Amino acid sequence: MNPFKVGEKITRVPLIQGGMGVGISLGNLAGSVAAEGGVGIISTAQIGFREPDFEKNPVKANERAIQKEMDKARKISPEGIIGYNIMTALKEFKNHVAAAVKAGADVIISGAGLPTELPRLTEGSSTQIAPIVSTEKSAKVILKYWDRKYQRTADLVVIEGPKAGGHLGFKKDELQYYSPEVYDEEVRKIIKIIRGYETKYQKKIPVILAGGIYDSDDVKHAAGLGADGVQVATRFVTTKECDAPAEYKGAYLKAEKEDIVIVKSPVGMPGRAILNPFIKRVMLGEKIPHTPCHGCLAKCSPNDIPYCITDSLINAAKGKVDQALLFCGADAYKAKRIETVKEVVDSLFDNK
């Protein structure tokens, strides 16, 4: 793997740090990864949860925090590559994209649905755009749609596999179907589609493999499949620079392999998280009381959900780990100590 371009900037290592919300990958982590030569990513999901007016006006609180976290990241890495992860499932998706562009995002990475409008929303800016896809079908659909409607293609593509953390782009039965060998073949098919658009548009489209990238062997495996880079999230949680509280990092350090489970999100999507008292209550079918609606997801019925995704993720970001949804990747249990971002980057790419 070689460094890749994001607009006019070039990485020093072929790495994107994955977006983790709520409040886990903010300006400090993103800026620190960018300073080490990777792409630092800030998650906009309920990013303004610490703002004093968040409960009364989450829209403005989130928009304000999008700028604040970029300012924080730029202080750490003035010339680095810094962007945002913005979920298409967000009710305020368009506002978040506009705020990210205004804040000077080098790139916007978007998943949790297909970001059909992203080219229009970023038109006229220098912000690069990257969809997250998980299957050959989703890659075909989004790239064909952008090609036909906007006469343009992706600047990067992130392929997120079944070992990823948080919300997954697979149904529960698909997670069982996609063994490592089967998914490797799916990755090859997706890359073939992307290379076709490279030829059509006469431009390089870096393909970034995500989900289950934990060490240098995983990076080498991704390179062997034809990926141009990797996206890593879980590994960065247990770093000194991560924005997560000490209690959250501690939950990763304590987790055993059998503690990593697939849970059902309130909006019906499967997700991967650490088994804790909160998740046990959810699995028993308990309906957990929640605060008034924060307006986070477009497709959510507050009266019908078993628990509030925002409440549970904010609890995680505030260190209330027994009352929280602790999203994580499949290999979170491998974390044994707190590292620095530099140590993680060096180990991923065998830098001495």
Rank of each mutant, 00 (worst) to 15 (best):
Q176L: 15
T340V: 12
K249Y: 04
P302G: 09
P302H: 10
R50T: 14
K189F: 01
L284M: 15
T310K: 03
K352Q: 14
D259K: 02
E136V: 09
V230G: 10
P266T: 03
E258H: 13
P292L: 09
R74G: 00
A330T: 05
H96C: 12
R235H: 13
I16W: 04
R74Y: 02
R337L: 06
T116F: 15
S312G: 05
E92I: 02
G80T: 10
K102V: 05
A89C: 09
A210Q: 09
V263T: 11
V345N: 02
D346N: 13
D147P: 05
G224M: 13
P289A: 14
P162D: 12
A99Q: 06
C296D: 06
T239P: 08
Y183Q: 09
H290T: 13
N2G: 00
V267K: 01
R64S: 13
E51Y: 08
A244D: 07
M87S: 13
R195E: 07
I288K: 00
L26E: 06
K140D: 12
P119G: 08
G226R: 10
L275K: 14
D218S: 15
I274A: 07
E51C: 07
G250P: 02
T135M: 05
A164V: 14
H290S: 15
A45L: 15
V133D: 02
K172C: 00
K249D: 03
E258C: 04
G295S: 04
V344A: 04
V207D: 01
Q151Y: 02
D217E: 15
A112R: 01
A34W: 07
M1L: 11
T340C: 09
G48S: 12
S265K: 01
V22H: 00
G169S: 06
T238N: 08
K299P: 00
N351A: 05
A65Y: 10
E256D: 12
K9E: 08
K189Y: 00
I47M: 05
K257A: 11
D228R: 09
K172V: 15
H96N: 13
E55T: 09
T11I: 06
Q17Y: 01
D173V: 08
P245W: 10
T199F: 00
N351I: 15
V13H: 03
K352I: 11
D147E: 13
P245G: 12
Q151S: 12
A34L: 06
A112K: 03
A73W: 09
F170I: 09
P206H: 05
I279N: 01
D311W: 01
A316D: 01
V107W: 07
I16F: 12
